[in-house]
Amino acid sequence: METNEKELKPEESLQIIEKMIQHTKGNLHDSSFYFLLWGWIVLIGSSGQIILERFTDCNKPYLIWLIIIPGVIANTIYGIRHGKRTCVSSHLDRLNLMIWITFLVSYFIVIIFIKEFNYNIAPVIFLLAGNATFLTGIVIKFKPLIFGGIIFWAGVLCMYIIPGDFAEFVSPIVIIFGYLIPGYMLKSYSKKNA
């Protein structure tokens, strides 16, 4: 843009508006890091608990979920660093952030009242994670995440339909297909379009 007071024709104005709005498209930030981080944490947690329960004498297999603590630390450090590097934020970025804040708030409410759920919160968490994943997929127009959300919902149905012992294998499968694979696809897509 050379001069600031150049007389513009209406057609030129329209072209400028189109060009600038086009520039802001595809500004959505790559959020694959979070999908991969939490995908791996939940996968290690859920499959680790199954292994510890079935193949060891460990009497506190749920302690494997302490892995969430370094996850939160990594998530926070990455979020702060990434935020510092970012020089633009779109409305969709904000919407996406709000979707996951909604998930986190709901998650903590469920955790607080975990006793009321008879400690069986996996279906509720998966339902919430499915909603957030599906909505993120819609917001960023990325089909693998939309399917990921649907896989979470299907996983919740399976948890109730599939009998006893097999139900616990649903979690790792859902995490792999609902979170990790879409996460890697998003990472690859973001790299290609960087």
């Binding site: 400028i16 508006i17 060009k19 600038m20 709005i21 520039h23 802001t24 500004n27 633009v88 934020s89 779109s90 409305h91 970025d93 904000r94």
Partner: peptide, 8 residues
């Protein structure tokens, strides 16, 4: 035109 499409 840029700012109308962005948060900041």
């Amino acid at each position: 035109s840029l700012l109308v499409s962005l948060e900041n």
